[in-house]
Amino acid sequence: MRIAHLSDIHFGGENPQAVAAASAWLAAEPLDLVVVSGDLTRFGETQEFVSAAAWLKTLPKPRLVTPGNHDAPYLAWVDRLFTPFARYERAIGRARFQTHLAPGLAVYGLNTARGVQPRANWSKGQISQNQVAEALAWFAQAPADALRIVVCHHPLTEMIGGPMTGKVWRGEAAAQAFAEAGIDLVLSGHIHAPFTWPYGYGDGHTYAAGAGTLSVRERGVPPGFNLIETDAEEMRVQALAWTGSKFEPSRTWSLARR
């Protein structure tokens, strides 16, 4: 199984050379799925969504795309308050959840971003008990031998030493629930740096994996994305970094499967 995981493109503030090179790389590779875990835009502006939608159409199918906090309008306050993901849904697709089911693979995308929250920093994440329950009910219908992946924008638990935080409300409880249900991977973005780590719950074989950014908003890490390759024994997450002329492997993690 080969899955490309991209995140935080931030059209309106994208790195044009890296975005174009990523498109060419993806088109040349045999892939089972392309995942984009949110923040397709910089400010949630209509023209940014037009650019994002046009770019997505150049990527191989199948694709699964989730929204991020930057995909709610930054300046259009009425829209942000009442219909924060209407622009996203018109241009990209359903915001609330997405699914992909194929032989050996079950993927569920959910939205951890919110238009407004009862705290000062609206960029941080939330996940509700209902969202977790709906995801697990869907996975319960998937074949038992399928690789199980959850996709969301914010890391459910914090990356130690990371360049920024997700501070996801109810994130730790969601991570525990997914681990105890036998989810294999939880893919996210938001912090603009690649990482992996195991959740400290269940049998220890549920892992978080984050992708970097293809924007100019670098946080000490070059633009890049991840390639995930799996077999019966392990999941290999390879971070590909933009050198200015091409993507090169910068780090690879080997994660043992249950």
Rank of each mutant, 00 (worst) to 15 (best):
A102K: 13
A113V: 06
Q126I: 14
R96A: 15
S7W: 06
A137H: 13
L6Q: 06
R219Q: 03
R258A: 11
G171V: 00
G210S: 10
R217A: 03
D231L: 03
A142K: 10
G212Q: 00
E89C: 11
A140M: 11
T157Y: 03
G224A: 00
P73L: 02
E172Q: 09
G202P: 01
W122Y: 13
A211K: 01
R80H: 13
Q17A: 15
G224S: 07
R170N: 14
T41G: 15
R2W: 09
L56S: 05
F82Y: 14
I149V: 14
W138V: 04
V216M: 12
A193H: 09
L255P: 00
D8K: 04
L33C: 14
A91F: 11
V78M: 15
D39I: 03
I160M: 08
T99F: 04
L136E: 13
V116N: 06
V107W: 05
I149K: 04
Y88S: 14
P16F: 10
D231T: 03
A177D: 02
G224H: 01
K61M: 15
Y207F: 13
D71G: 05
G212L: 02
C152H: 07
A21K: 07
I149A: 05
M1L: 14
R114C: 02
A211C: 06
F195K: 00
I3P: 02
I149Q: 01
P198N: 09
S23E: 15
P249M: 05
E180K: 13
M164P: 08
R219G: 04
A27M: 09
L214A: 03
G68S: 12
N226M: 01
D8W: 03
V132E: 04
A106H: 10
S215Y: 10
P16C: 09
Q117C: 09
R258G: 12
E158G: 00
V50Y: 13
Q98C: 09
A175P: 03
M159P: 03
R236I: 01
G68K: 11
E234A: 12
A72K: 02
S250K: 00
Q238V: 00
N15P: 03
N226P: 00
Y199H: 11
